[in-house]
């Protein structure tokens, strides 16, 4: 199925959860948050949150500077 990741349309496997997405793209899970359709996905919901066709996903990197 197609999703939009960081503004780019990509093809991913069906039945992928957020956890699977992080593994697939080898993202640094502890340093980023995942935003799905304009909402942060809580870390505790990565396994239960199944991606759907046309989901818009953004990887949000934590920043701490001031």
């Amino acid at each position: 199925m197609n999703i939009v990741l960081n503004g780019e349309e990509i093809l991913i496997a069906d039945n992928l959860n957020v956890s699977g997405l992080i593994d697939f793209f080898d993202l640094p899970a502890s340093k980023v948050a995942v935003e799905r359709n304009l909402e942060i996905v809580p870390k505790s919901a990565y396994v239960t949150t199944m991606l759907k066709e046309n989901d818009r996903i953004e990887i949000v990197h934590f920043i701490g500077g001031g």
Binding site: K31, A33, I40, P42, F62, G64, G65, G66
Partner: peptide, 15 residues
């Protein structure tokens, strides 16, 4: 709810 505890020890991300 946004940033996990492990980031507390990250100090290479300052300006």
């Amino acid at each position: 709810s946004l940033v996990p505890e492990n980031m507390a020890s990250v100090n290479d991300m300052d300006c």
